[in-house]
């Protein structure tokens, strides 16, 4: 598939307040495929670009359930089925003694699901990304705030999108080559 020559139009702002306001206006102007970049988590920014819900909690819940159930099942199978061992007359299925490992396995699986689930949903690791080619984008991890309109957006138009972004009074605008 032939890629479009530009990846998107990137506007630079110098404060989180300006970025959130600009993101709101861009989203309200009907642009759907937009994203924002900031050096720290900015409150309300995800909502401003129209991203309201993420699936990390669901992944963690599933991971935790798998961990806890498999932890308990493993202990039951080992202690009561595969290798029943009479220790001081305790029942083979001595469930109170199995709670600790069940708990630890729940935490382990849920925690690893949180980390790997977050990375996977974010599409990381991704060593190369077109936005890194933008000249001032290195400041996105320091003190600058960026808003991008992707060229895949149906409303995207090289001239009119630039005019729209200029109306948001950014510090700079650049076209990101793909």
């Amino acid at each position: 598939m032939k890629r479009p020559p530009t990846y998107g139009m990137l506007a630079e702002f110098d404060s989180p307040t300006a970025l959130v306001a600009a993101a709101h206006r861009t989203h309200e102007a009907g642009y759907q495929k937009i994203d924002a970049y900031s050096p720290f988590p900015v409150e309300g920014l995800a909502e401003a670009i129209g991203f309201h819900k993420n699936n990390v909690p669901l992944v963690v819940l599933i991971g935790g359930l798998i961990g806890g159930l498999s932890g308990y099942a493993m202990q039951y199978w080992i202690s009561a089925v595969s290798y029943p061992l009479n220790v001081g007359g305790k029942p083979y299925h001595s469930w109170p003694a199995f709670i600790v490992v069940t708990f630890e396995m729940t935490i382990l699986f849920a925690g690893l699901s949180a980390v790997f689930g977050m990375l996977a949903l974010n599409g990381l690791p991704m060593p190369y990304h077109p936005v890194f080619n933008a000249p001032r984008f290195a400041f996105a991890t320091k003190d600058r705030f960026f808003l991008i309109v992707f060229s895949s957006d149906p409303k995207y138009d090289g001239v009119r999108t630039r005019q729209f972004l200029e109306s948001l009074t950014p510090k700079s605008i650049s076209e990101v080559p793909s």
């Binding site: 993101a23 994203d35 924002a36 970049y37 900031s38 050096p39 720290f40 988590p41 900015v42 920014l45 995800a46 401003a48 670009i49 991203f51 993420n54 990390v56 909690p57 963690v60 949180a114 980390v115 689930g117 977050m118 990375l119 949903l121 974010n122 990381l124 690791p125 991704m126 060593p127 190369y128 990304h129 936005v131 890194f132 984008f137 996105a140 991890t141």
Partner: peptide, 17 residues
């Protein structure tokens, strides 16, 4: 850094995680 670029979507999931 695995290609971290500070995207708003990424930060949202990151903070949840």
């Amino acid at each position: 850094a695995m290609g971290w670029r500070g995207s708003a979507r990424h930060w949202f999931r990151y903070e949840t995680a």
